[in-house]
């Protein structure tokens, strides 16, 4: 079937098998390879992207289900001039990554969290990220980065 969606502001159309998963559509048809396939069982969250503004695990969504939708991957977060998104800046400042494999999904889950809850407590952050696994176990710095990104948005 033909799937047409908007990925990071650009329209992408491709003829794919009905069973194509969104993550494979993004990587293979749209060429957006930052989003990783991790566990492939909707547990680890490495494939998290935004579908119409909300975080989803793109290994458990059919490309056909996202037809006509608006997708944001980590490649689409920075401003056109290259200035990083506040969550990306905070991840770098707080050293919230080690091997980096979970990072694209982790960052997108955080963007979705802060859209729903701009002023989370540490507990809120840990609960909201329960669907994203970091096998390096770098959670402390990740949580610190989320809180830093959130506080950076508050008027001082």
């Amino acid at each position: 079937m033909k799937v047409t969606l908007t990925a990071n502001g650009s329209e992408v159309a491709a003829e794919v098998e009905d069973r194509t998963l969104l993550v494979h559509f993004l990587r293979d048809a749209a060429g957006l390879t930052a989003t990783n396939v991790g566990c492939d069982t909707s547990s680890c969250g490495a494939c998290t992207v935004l579908l119409d503004g909300r975080s989803v695990k793109s290994c458990t969504v059919l490309a056909a289900q996202a037809d006509g939708g608006e997708i944001t991957t980590v490649e689409g977060l920075a401003a056109p001039d290259g200035e990083m998104h506040p969550v990306q800046t905070a991840f770098r400042a707080e050293h919230a990554l080690q091997c980096g494999f979970c990072t694209p999904g982790m960052v997108m889950a955080v963007v979705s969290l802060l859209a729903e809850n701009p002023d989370p407590t540490e507990d809120d952050v840990r609960t909201a990220l329960e669907g994203n696994l970091c096998r390096c176990t770098g959670y402390h710095n990740i949580v610190r980065a989320v809180l830093a990104a959130a506080s950076g948005r508050r008027p001082s």
């Binding site: 909707s42 969250g45 975080s55 695990k57 458990t60 969504v61 979705s112 329960e130 669907g131 994203n132």
Partner: peptide, 9 residues
């Protein structure tokens, strides 16, 4: 149920 991503879908 599940996690935020699962609850969105």
């Amino acid at each position: 149920v599940g996690d935020p991503q699962v609850r969105h879908r």
